[in-house]
Simulated scan of single mutants.
Amino acid sequence: MKVLNLPAPAKLNLFLHITGRRDDGYHELQTVFQFLDQCDHLRIRPRNDGRIVVFGPDWLPAADNLITRAAQSLRVRTGTGLGATIELIKQLPAGGGLGGGSSDAATTLVGLNHLWETGLSRAQLAILGLELGADVPVFVHGVAAWGEGVGEQLTPVLPPEHWYLVLVPDAEVSTGKIFSASDLTRTTPKRRMRTAFEGSDGLSNDCEPVVRRIYPAVDQAFEWLERYGKAQLTGTGGCVFCPFETESAAIDALAKIPSGINGFIAQGRNRSPLYTQLGELD
C-alpha cells in the first residue's frame, strides 16, 4: 500500500494583536501567518482494518493526541472503513509558538484525505481542523494569510519570504497561562489589512510583555536577539525570531548565540511545504 512521507511545517505570527474577548472566553485576534521550511515529518501508511495507530516521541500520548483525533475526525466525517499507521518524527519544539501540534493535525487530515481518497476540499478539511484547534485551518489551507476571529478567518497575503533566525529558549510556555494573565492587553484597535503594514512599527505581539515577565529565558533571548534588529515573539511563545535579508547573515548571527540558547535558521514560505511536496507526488 502507498506510504506518504509528508512535512508538517512551522509557522510564524509576523504580528499578533488581541482586539477583544468573546463571551465564550476565546480571544479575538488579528495576525499574519507565514510558514517556515522547518518541519515535523509524518510517515502515513493506510490500513484495511480501520484502526488508527500513532507513534512517535516517548511523551506523545498513545490515544489522546491531535494526530489521532484528526484521523478519527476524518473517518467519522467520511464514513471510510480504512485506518492508518502514522509515525511522527518530531523536529519542532513543543510550547514554542510555532504551531507544531496544529501542523501535525493538518498534515494528518490532508495526507489521509489523499491516501483514503475521501475527496474533501481544503475548505471542508479546514472546518474539521477548527474543531481540533484555532491554528489548524491555516495549515490546511497552506498559504500565508491574514487571520482574524480566533485566527480561523483567513485571507491570503504575500509577505516577504525573509530568512529568519529563530531562538528556542528553555521554556515551554503555557498558552492558558498567558491568555489568563490579568496584565495581557486585550483592547488593541483593529487595523485594516490594506493599511496594516503602513508604519509597521505599530505591529507587535501583545503577548510579549506577559511572556517576558513570566519566563526569564524568553526575556534573555529577546535581549540578545534585539542586537540584530526587531526581535518578535511568535504566537504565545516562547520562540523568538528576527528577519534577515540573506541566509549568510542569519547563519553568522546563529554562530554567535550564547550557550544555553538553542536556535535554527529557516526561510519564510508563503506556500506550505506540505503542498509543495504533495504537488511533486501527483
Rank of each mutant, 00 (worst) to 15 (best):
M1Y: 11
L4W: 04
L4E: 09
L4K: 02
L6W: 04
P9G: 11
A10K: 03
N13I: 14
G20C: 07
R22G: 11
D23H: 10
D24A: 08
H27N: 03
E28W: 00
Q30G: 04
T31P: 01
F35K: 10
D37Y: 00
Q38N: 07
C39E: 11
C39A: 12
L42K: 07
L42Y: 05
R43K: 09
I44L: 15
R45W: 02
N48E: 14
D49L: 10
V54N: 03
F55I: 12
P57V: 06
L60N: 13
P61V: 08
A62E: 14
L66F: 05
I67P: 09
I67A: 13
A71K: 07
L74I: 03
G81V: 03
G81F: 01
L82H: 12
A84K: 00
E87Y: 04
K90Q: 01
Q91Y: 01
Q91A: 06
A94I: 11
G96H: 02
L98G: 10
L109H: 06
V110D: 01
H114S: 10
L115T: 08
W116Y: 11
E117C: 15
G119L: 07
G119T: 05
R122N: 01
R122W: 00
R122G: 00
A123Q: 07
I127Q: 13
I127M: 08
L128Y: 08
L130W: 03
L130P: 04
E131Y: 02
A134R: 05
P137I: 10
H141K: 09
H141A: 02
G142Y: 00
A144N: 02
E148G: 09
E152T: 15
T155R: 13
T155S: 11
V157L: 10
L158T: 15
L158Y: 14
P160S: 14
E161I: 02
E161A: 05
W163A: 00
W163V: 05
Y164D: 13
L165R: 06
L165W: 01
L165M: 06
L165G: 01
L167Q: 04
E172D: 03
S174H: 11
K177H: 14
K177S: 15
I178Q: 03
A181F: 00
A181C: 05
D183P: 00
L184V: 15
R186E: 10
T188S: 15
K190N: 00
M193H: 08
R194A: 13
T195I: 09
S200Y: 05
S204W: 08
N205D: 11
D206V: 07
P209C: 07
V211S: 07
R212T: 06
R213K: 15
I214G: 03
Y215V: 10
Q220E: 15
Q220Y: 05
F222N: 08
W224N: 04
E226M: 13
Y228F: 15
K230D: 05
Q232V: 07
T236G: 12
C239K: 13
C242S: 14
P243V: 13
E245L: 12
T246H: 06
I251Y: 06
A253M: 10
L254W: 01
N262V: 02
Q267W: 01
Q267Y: 02
G268E: 07
R269P: 00
R271S: 10
S272Y: 01
S272D: 02
P273C: 09
Q277C: 04
Q277T: 13
L281A: 09
L281Q: 12
D282I: 12
D282F: 13
